[in-house]
């Protein structure tokens, strides 16, 4: 790599330095916009005791669900984990810890983490089990709880197009958590469908500026659909 060129050619290079016990922030919503090849590489690496910050945990056999197969995840920070029988089994057996976090709070934790904000106050979760043990403050007559931001040793992100400098665009609702995840990794790895030359992406249309990104790799994607709902033509 030279200058701003962030492109790596193998998934070995893409995740070099990822070790057991690290925190990994992952983009994606359900199976939409997940970094599926980076997840597969983490499985192959066999690293364990990971803390994974992701809205969901994939399904059995796909997405982050594959990391449950060899018990690589110690803790999940997620808003919804209901699509996954193995997850349930490990949770009930006490082999897996889960920190359920409201979806908007989770997005904001990543955003704040990437923006150097250690904590923020939100009304979400006040008066619920989510508020237990958290500082409460009143602003303008309303109660808010303090939520701490998150950062990761690695962030794994799925983009649509990137240029060699790591500027990224996302496609449709595959954007979801990816832009926030991208800002919150010490090492942010983005896998994309297409890599173009600097200057080919319209600067004002870039979702994630390259300053957040350390490595870019081109992958091929299955893009599995979770709920295939159709109408008659």
């Amino acid at each position: 790599m030279a200058g701003f060129d962030k492109v790596v050619n193998t998934y070995e290079e893409a995740l070099a330095g990822l070790e057991s016990g690290m925190t990994v922030i992952a983009g994606g919503f359900g199976l939409c916009g997940i970094p599926e090849n980076l997840i597969a590489r983490i499985k192959q690496m066999g690293v364990k005791d990971l803390t994974i910050v992701s809205n969901n945990c994939g399904v059995d056999g796909f997405g982050l669900g594959v990391l449950l197969e060899d018990r690589q995840i110690r803790k999940m920070i997620s808003s919804y984990v209901g699509e996954n029988a193995l997850f349930e089994k490990q949770l009930l057996a006490g082999e897996l810890e889960v920190e359920l976090t409201p979806q908007g709070t989770l997005a904001e934790k990543m955003r704040a983490g990437g923006a150097g904000i250690p904590a923020f106050f939100t009304a979400t979760g006040f008066g619920t089990p989510v508020a237990e043990g958290k500082e409460v403050r009143e602003f303008n007559g309303r109660s808010y709880i303090m939520e701490e931001s998150v950062t990761g040793d690695f962030a794994i992100v799925k983009g649509w197009k990137a240029d060699r400098y790591g500027n990224v665009m996302y496609r449709h609702t595959a954007q979801n958590f990816n832009p926030m995840a991208a800002t919150a990794g010490k090492i942010t790895v983005v896998e994309v469908e297409e890599i173009v030359e600097p200057g080919e992406l319209e600067p004002s249309q870039i979702h994630t500026p390259g300053i957040y990104v350390q490595r870019v790799i081109k992958g091929t994607f299955e893009k599995r659909i979770e709920q295939r709902t159709l109408r008659q033509a």
């Binding site: 919503f29 359900g30 199976l31 939409c32 916009g33 809205n55 979806q103 908007g104 989770l106 997005a107 904001e108 990543m110 955003r111 649509w160 496609r171 449709h172 609702t173 595959a174 954007q175 979801n176 958590f177 990816n178 832009p179 926030m180 979702h207 893009k223 599995r224 659909i225 979770e226 709920q227 295939r228 709902t229 159709l230």
Partner: peptide, 24 residues
Amino acid sequence: DADMINAGKQTVTAIPGASIFSSA
């Protein structure tokens, strides 16, 4: 399109005048 889903993870479309953005 696998990249077009709703919060129930169902495939959907967008109407003319729709916008798409991040979770934050």
